[in-house]
């Protein structure tokens, strides 16, 4: 039962990743693409981490998965911000 639930979470997370990738490929400009990618991948990552954590054998493993989730989430959010910031600056918009 628990394994089934975990598999469902991981499958749902994968679906979000696929949706994010479709958005990346189909959306017209860099901001729309970032919007699709950062949101969908953030949720997909959380779902997959949750699913994997359910299957983890020990509290230590759950803790490590939580750490991985936290730092990947923070890093990808920062990356998204940096890419958008760079795009704005090189397009001549904004003055920061």
């Amino acid at each position: 039962m628990l394994e089934l639930f975990a598999a469902a979470l991981i499958a749902l997370g994968t679906a979000f990743f696929i949706a994010g990738t479709v958005g990346l490929l189909r959306f017209p400009d860099i901001y729309c693409r970032l919007h699709a990618l950062t949101k969908a991948d953030g949720l997909g990552l959380a779902l997959i981490a949750l699913g994997v954590a359910l299957l983890a054998g020990s509290a230590g493993e759950v803790f490590r998965i939580a750490l991985v989730w936290f730092f990947v989430a923070v890093a990808s959010a920062t990356c998204g911000h940096l890419i958008a910031r760079y795009a704005r600056q090189s397009a001549g918009v904004g003055d920061d």
């Binding site: 890093a75 911000h81 940096l82 910031r85």
Partner: peptide, 11 residues
């Protein structure tokens, strides 16, 4: 930028 600085402090 500031967001990057904050990320640096955290990471």
């Amino acid at each position: 930028g500031e967001v990057w600085q904050g990320f640096g402090r955290l990471a």
